[in-house]
Nucleic acid binder design. Sequence first.
DNA 1: AAATTTTACGAAAACGATTTCGTACCTTTC
DNA 2: GAAAGGTACGAAATCGTTTTCGTAAAATTT
Lengths: 336, 336
Amino acid sequence: MGDITIKELAQKLNVSIATISKALNDSHEISAATKEKVLAGVRKYNYTPNPNASSLRKKRSNTIAIVIPEVADSFFSQALKGIESIAQNLGYHVLIYLTYESFYKERLILNDIKNGRVDGVLMSISSETSNSLHIKALRDRNIPIVFFDRVMEETETAKVVTDDYQSSYKATQHLLERGCQHIAYLSTSKHLMISNERKDGYLQALKEHHIKASKHTVVQCSNHAEYNFTVLQKLLQQEDRPDGIIASIERLTSTIYLVCKELGIAIPGQLKVITFSNLDTAPILSPSLTTVSQPAFEMGRTAASILFKALQKKKLNIKNEKIVIPSVLVKRESTN
Amino acid sequence: MGDITIKELAQKLNVSIATISKALNDSHEISAATKEKVLAGVRKYNYTPNPNASSLRKKRSNTIAIVIPEVADSFFSQALKGIESIAQNLGYHVLIYLTYESFYKERLILNDIKNGRVDGVLMSISSETSNSLHIKALRDRNIPIVFFDRVMEETETAKVVTDDYQSSYKATQHLLERGCQHIAYLSTSKHLMISNERKDGYLQALKEHHIKASKHTVVQCSNHAEYNFTVLQKLLQQEDRPDGIIASIERLTSTIYLVCKELGIAIPGQLKVITFSNLDTAPILSPSLTTVSQPAFEMGRTAASILFKALQKKKLNIKNEKIVIPSVLVKRESTN
DNA sequence: AAATTTTACGAAAACGATTTCGTACCTTTC
DNA sequence: GAAAGGTACGAAATCGTTTTCGTAAAATTT
C-alpha cells in the first residue's frame, strides 16, 4: 500500500507540491536547503512520481517501442540487447512488439502506439510490408522512427544497415574462388530491401565471373520450415544441382544441413554453404559454418543512439541518412 | 499533426466528452444511435485515447513488465515470444528489462516500475539474486508478479517451472546407462533454485547407482566464456578426467565443444555430453547434441496467462502454487 | 532611503482521459 | 393524471504530476 503521492509527501514535509516537483527536477528556483529536505523526504517515504501523470503533463513518456518481426533469432535478440543496454543507461523504457512477419499486425501495432505511449520507435519491418502508410501515420504524429536492418527505403529518416550488397558479393566471390560453378541464392521476401540487395550482390559477382545465366539460381523460401525443407529437397535432388549455396537468412541453416544429411550430400565436398547468420554455434556445427556475420549488437546500439539523441534534442525530424556497419565474412569448414 | 483529443472530437461531433468516453467504453448509458455516431467520428478523425490520461484516471496501465537476465539465449527468447503472443492477443503492452544477471540492476529496475507504470510483472531472477526485499516492495504496491523458470522460492505467488530435479536425474541416468563412470555437473549460480535442483537430481542418480563420492564432480562456472574455457580445460586435462558431462546452461555448449576439439577429446567416444538447452542447432552440431529441452514457449505462455487472469479479475494476490511443465530429454549422438 | 532586482516559494491552471452525479425527458404504474 | 422509474446525456470532479504566474521577503542598486 505504498503509493505515496506528491500531495501526501507535501503535507508531511510541510511544503507545496510545486516545491517538491521543482526540487526533484533540480530547478534553480529551489534553495539548496529545501532541496535536501525534499530529497530526504523522498528517500524516507520511498516516493516515486507517477509516470502516467508525469507523461501526461510533460507530453513525453520516456519510452520507446521496438517493433521487430521475431525474437527467437540471433540477429534480433542481439540487436534487442544493444538497444536495451543503451535505453537502460539513459533511463528510457522499452516496449517490445513482435510482428511475426505480418504486415497486418505491424499496422495494428503502430496504430496502437501512435498516441503518446512512446516518444520514438525503432523498427525492422516485416517481410510482408509493402507500403508505408502506417509509418507515415506515426510520423504525422511527430513520433520519430529509426530503422535498422530491414528498412523502409521511402521513409525519410535514419537507417542503420549493414553492407548487404557488398557482403553478399564477397560471399559469392568466396564460393567462386573455392571452385563453385553453380551457386544458388536462397531468398525470402521479395519486398525486403535487404533481401534484394543481397540478391543483387550475388548476381553481380556471378556476372563478373561470366557465369552463364542458367547457373543463376534464386530460390524463394518462406517462413515455414517444412515448406523450405521440400523446396531444398527438390533443389538438391535435381540433375543439375548447385554446388554452392548462399542462404540469406539464418533460419535456413538447419534446413540445409538436415536436407544434406538426408540426401547424403557432403558439405563442403559436394556443396559449399554460406549463411547470413549470427549463430553462436556456427563454429561447432558439423562442418563448422561459414557465415556472413552481421554486427547485430552494434546496429541496435547505433540505431538507439540516433533515436535518443534526436529525442533529447527534441529534433523530431531525423536526418535522412544511411549508416552502414559492415558485416564480416567468417570463413569456416563449410566452404573449404 | 494528428493528436486529436477527446475534447476536440466532442466539439466536432457536438456531444460532450463524457458521451464519447462512455460510447467508446460501450456504456449502457449511451444509445445505439449515439454510439454509432461517435464510432464514425472516431474513425473519421482517427482518434485514439491518450493512454497516459487513461491510465492515470483508471489506475491501470494495461502494461506488464518482463524482467529477465538475458535475451540472447534461446530459452529466454522463446519464453519472451510466448509471453508477447498472449499479451498481444489480450491487448496488453510489454515492457522488457534485462538484468544482465546483476542483482543491483534487478533492484533498480523493480524500483523503477513500482509506481503505476505496469500492472504486473513476469520475472526470472538473476543468478546473483539472493534476497527478495525488492520483490516484496513491488508486492507492497499491489503489483502481482509471476515467476518463470528462475523463481524466488520464498515469495508467495505462482511459479512456472520445469521439472529440473527429475530431468537432471534422468539425464544423469541416461549417461550412466551409456556406461559413464565419472560424470561432471557444470553449475552456474549457487543462489539459483533451478541450478541446485538440477545438481540434486544429478547427485541423487549418482547415489542410487553407487557411484563413489570421488566421482561426484560439481564444477562451478561463470558468466564469462573465457573463464569457463580455462575451467573446462583444467577439468578435461586432469588425470582422472570425466567421461560424461551435464551442463546446466546452454551457453556452455560451445565452450565444451571447443575445448574438446582443442584437446582432441572425442565426443561421444571419450566424453558424453548433455546440455540443458533449447538450441535450434542441437541436431546439426557435430556430433548432434543430446539436450534437456525446456518448454520455454509454453512456460512463457503459461506464466503470462496466469498473470493476465489475475489482472482481469483484479485478484492481485496470486495463489502460491508451482506449475510444472516437464522438459524432454532428446537423445542424440553426443551420448551415443 | 527609495527603487529595483533577485530569490524562493505557493496557488492554480493545465495535461486528457474516466467517473460520479444531477437532470430533463420519456415511460410505465396504480 | 400524479407518482415512480428508466433512459440518455452533460457538468464537473478527479487522477498525480508539471509549469506558469504571482508575490512576499531579501538583496542589490541608485
